[in-house]
Design a protein around this nucleic acid. Structure first.
Length: 233
DNA sequence: ACATCCTACCGTCAGCAGAC
DNA sequence: GTCTGCTGACGGTAGGATGT
């Protein structure tokens, strides 16, 4: 399978394999101008998209909340506007643009398929991205080649371990680190919001108590004033 | 029924502060 | 200097309420 495309600066080339045995863990490249998605080896855990209760609407239903959380995460990942055009490459090599709104739904129609994504940005030529199925590894990264028809240069991207980390390994490592950071920040933001909400609630309660106290004191003052007035008369 | 607005919630980014 | 966690700002989605 060979796909040709043109773009403006060759920026980087990344191949990533999303691994999610129990959790959603996609590698994606928000800065990349093109994100390709390849469907195969279906297997997965994505929840039923028919669940449409908003997260937090059913505070007593932890299962629903958790399920929805995963669903929302998946949706947000696939609908992330920074992710650039989302393109599906089908078995026949055809390329199809997936509108932002449909990414999540499209994904759910491939029940849990590990997603192969490659991001390419080329400067002034057409680059060819090809998959070498013969060198594909099992349970991990497949072997890919990228070549420029102008230079004829071709670089293997097989991800094999060497004495020095390959550019691909470096980018993978960077991608992994980024994902980890994002995940931690996501959790931190969630916790931060929870604490803030708690704090605001606390303040509101205090306001209610103080208002009540104030009202009582005003009434007390009024009663004392009345009493004083009666005495002086 | 559909459009629009509002509210709640989310993930990401950027900037800051503290720890190492 | 780098790393890490926290948090405000921002932009996005979904669901409910309301108007037409």
């Amino acid at each position: 399978m060979v796909n040709k495309f043109s773009a403006k600066h060759f920026f980087f080339f990344l191949v990533s394999y999303s691994r999610y045995n129990q959790n959603l863990s996609f590698d994606f490249f928000p800065q990349s101008p093109l994100v390709f998605c390849k469907e195969e080896n279906t297997k997965g855990v994505l929840p039923d998209s028919s669940t449409s209760t908003r997260l937090g609407d059913s505070p007593n239903n932890e299962d629903a909340k958790q399920k929805l959380d995963v669903e929302t995460s998946a949706r947000n990942i696939f609908n992330n506007n920074n992710a650039g055009p989302f393109i599906s490459v089908n078995q026949g090599g055809g390329v199809q643009f997936i509108p932002c709104q449909q990414r999540y739904d499209t994904f759910t129609s491939w029940p849990g398929s590990p997603i192969m994504q490659y991001a390419v940005h080329s400067s002034n030529g057409t680059y060819i991205v090809s998959e070498d199925k013969g060198q594909a590894t099992t349970g991990g990264m497949s072997a890919y080649q990228i070549s420029s028809p102008a230079s004829g240069h071709s670089q293997a991207m097989d991800g094999s371990p060497g004495s020095l980390p390959s550019p691909q390994q470096l980018t993978e490592e960077a991608s992994r680190k980024r994902e980890l950071r994002l995940m931690k920040n996501r959790e931190a933001a969630r916790e931060c919001r929870r604490k803030k909400k708690e704090y605001v609630k606390c303040l509101e309660n205090r306001v209610a108590v103080l208002e009540k106290q104030n009202k009582t004191l005003i009434e007390e003052l009024k009663a004392l004033k009345d009493l004083y007035c009666h005495k002086t008369e």
